[in-house]
Amino acid sequence: MSLDPTGLAAAAEAAEAVDATGAIPDTAGGTAIEGRSPWLLAWQRLRRDRVAMISLAAIVLIMLMAIFAPLATTLTGHPPNEQYRDIGLTPDGLPKGPTSQFWLGTDDLGRDILVRIAYGARVSLLVGVVSTGIAVAIGVVIGLAAGFFGGIVDTVLARLVDVALTVPFLLVAIALVSITGPSLTITILVIGFFSWASVARIVRGQVLSLREREFVEAARSLGASDSRIMFVDILPNVLAPVIVYSTLLIPVVIVAEATLTFLGLGLPPPTADWGGMISDGQDYYTTAWWFLIFPGAALLLTTLAFNLFGDGVRDAFDPRSDQILT
């Protein structure tokens, strides 16, 4: 798997190869009479996007579920790691299906699946947001530096991006985890360090054309330092694509986390985690469908919501792209 949502980085590279002159994209929202900022315009467009708003509502719900996960314990009286081997398992020691006591059934150790799904949302969202943050921070700095300084700096950094984009993610994760052992920190770091390259490539492409613009020349003639031009003058102009890309990166990261844990490389048991639950559930799919289906549905709904919302954000920032799902 490559951590490049929708192949945007690949597309960016291809566009670069063909269009080496770097046509300047118009980023400003035109001259509105009321002086609405591009951000406001994007928000207004997003508000009208029904699919994006429904997805946003779903994301908020999932976040609430993560924040108020202890409430699920209060409601059901079942802590996430409590094993109800007497009332939570059948006489043969198999998971129990949904009942009034365990709304979504129990797992192989007699734990409450509903409560564990609620707690699992915490891990998914935490890793999703933190790893994406790390990736975006590294990617923006490297992309800015490569695009702004050009020359040898660009050559070296661009090579680095090429290498980072092509290292087989899961194999290296296997090698790393075989040394460090699985943990939350390692999971977050591995995913973060494997996702920055596509961000860097997108930022670099934008900066390449921006640095030739008049406002950069003006800043320089006013005596602004390189770092001031990079972070104060240029950075705000690349924020829109970075935000779009970050939104689309979150679901990719969530899937990566679930995949690592599914393979036993992510969060160690007994942490309640969707990927881990699905991994345990796969041994019981012939006898306990709920054990596989409910955590799977939670994971799929989350990634779907983020992807649909991310699509909406992209359309809102780039009105020329046609909105096909609304």
Partner: peptide, 24 residues
């Protein structure tokens, strides 16, 4: 629209989940 929705659905689907669902 249908093809795009179809693509987005499977794009959001973790491969291990799809594999297990197909097996089921």
């Amino acid at each position: 629209r249908s093809l795009t929705a179809f693509a987005l659905f499977f794009y959001s689907m973790p491969s291990f989940l799809l594999g297990l669902l197909l097996l089921y």
